[in-house]
Design a protein around this nucleic acid. Structure first.
Length: 198
DNA sequence: CCATTAAATGGCC
DNA sequence: GGCCATTTAATGG
């Protein structure tokens, strides 16, 4: 967990339940709360001018949702959409600021978390501007596997659909499917029961 | 069973 | 690699 649940609750956080397809916040709306995932998965997305979805991130338990907006005066650049039944902690912006003022260590942890996310955004951008589809896809797989405790080959069951991989890399589903099959031939990954193991 | 959704394939540019 | 059409597989009432 980024911030201990008890601490958040002591500053007035509430527990909120969400269901698949629920929108936690819309692109263009004004940030008013700090959100932290207790359980479930949330995606941050954006639709380009052609209606094609770009997935900026898929967030899991313990992580905060777009907290960076609480440090500036801008509207959300993405939508936050619930992927599976989720439980979130929600704390108002003023209470969040009060909590940071009173807890130096929390402030430091937030800094660290923000830095890591920014770092990975750079890596992802580097991969996603490659002209090679396999580089883009392996970039996403490496990123997600880096959070796994088990690092041996084929040990990571990729929790993403082909379509989600496509939306994260700017590729088309068919390209993702074909590239993945080719990567399997090259022994870079395995496909068992349609699931990807990396 | 059927409906829905994801995955896979093949043809064409 | 994208786009389109079609088929196949998996999932959940």
């Amino acid at each position: 967990m980024l911030i201990e649940q008890e601490l958040l609750l002591s500053f007035g956080a509430t527990i909120e339940n969400f269901y698949p397809a629920d929108i936690i916040f819309d692109e263009g709306s004004t940030p008013k709360y700090y959100y932290q995932i207790v359980k479930g998965r949330i995606k941050l997305n954006h639709y380009n001018e052609n209606g094609k979805e770009l997935i900026l991130a898929i967030l899991t338990s313990g992580l905060s949702v777009c907290e960076l907006l609480l440090f500036m005066d801008k509207t959300y650049p993405v939508n936050a959409v619930v992927l599976e039944p989720s439980t979130l902690l929600r704390l108002s912006k003023v209470d969040f600021e009060r909590m940071l003022d009173e807890n130096v260590m929390i402030s430091r942890n937030i800094n660290k978390f923000l830095s890591e996310r920014l770092y990975h955004k750079i890596i992802m951008l580097e991969n996603n501007t490659s002209t090679h589809a396999d580089v883009r896809i392996l970039g996403v797989l490496n990123y997600h596997k880096s959070f796994s405790s088990e690092q041996s080959k084929y040990s990571f069951e990729v929790p993403l659909t082909r379509q989600q991989l496509a939306s994260m890399t700017g590729l088309r589903v068919e390209t993702v499917i074909r590239t993945i099959k080719n990567l399997e031939k090259l022994s870079k990954l395995q496909i068992r029961d349609r699931k990807i193991y990396y």
